[in-house]
Amino acid sequence: MQCDYFDSGACRSCTLMGTPYPLQLSGRGDRVREVLAAHPGTTWLPPVESPESDYRNKAKMVVGGTVDAPTIGLLDRDGRPVDIRGCGVCTPGVRAVLPVLAEFVTTAGLTPYDVAARRGELKYLLVTDSPDGRVMVRFVLRSTEPLPRLRKHLPALLRRLPQLEVVTANLLPEHKAVVEGEEEVVLTERSTLSMRVNDLDLHLRPQSFFQTNTSVAAALYRQARAWTEELQPASVWDLYCGVGGFALHCAAPGRDVVGVETSAEAAASARQSARDAGFDGVRFEVGDATEFALAAPAPPDLVIVNPPRRGLGAPLSRWLEESGVRHVLYSSCNVTSLAKDLDAMPSLRPHVGRVLDMFPQTAHQEVAVLLGRD
Rank of each mutant, 00 (worst) to 15 (best):
A266P: 11
G259L: 09
A264K: 13
H249I: 06
W237N: 01
Y240W: 09
G254N: 08
T262H: 08
E261Y: 05
D256I: 08
E265S: 15
S235W: 04
V243N: 06
P233G: 06
W237F: 04
V243C: 14
F246M: 14
C250T: 15
G242D: 12
P233Q: 05
S263C: 10
G245L: 06
Y240L: 02
C250M: 15
E261K: 05
T262S: 14
G254Y: 08
C241V: 06
A266M: 09
A251G: 13
A247R: 00
G245E: 09
C250S: 12
L239D: 06
E261T: 04
S235R: 06
S263H: 08
T262F: 00
A251T: 11
F246E: 09
G244V: 11
V258D: 02
D238F: 01
D238Y: 00
P233R: 02
L239V: 09
A264T: 14
D256S: 15
H249T: 05
F246K: 06
D256V: 14
G244P: 12
E261G: 04
G244R: 10
G245C: 08
G254C: 07
V257L: 11
V258K: 01
V243R: 01
A251P: 13
P253N: 06
C241T: 15
E265V: 13
L248A: 13
C241A: 14
L248H: 12
W237C: 00
V236M: 00
E265W: 14
G245Y: 08
R255H: 11
S263N: 08
G244E: 13
A266W: 10
F246G: 07
E265P: 12
A266V: 08
A252W: 08
W237V: 08
T262V: 15
A251N: 13
G242Y: 07
L248N: 13
V243E: 07
S263Q: 09
D256Q: 15
G259K: 04
F246V: 10
G259Y: 12
V236T: 13
A247T: 00
A266N: 09
P253D: 07
G254T: 09
W237G: 02
S263D: 09
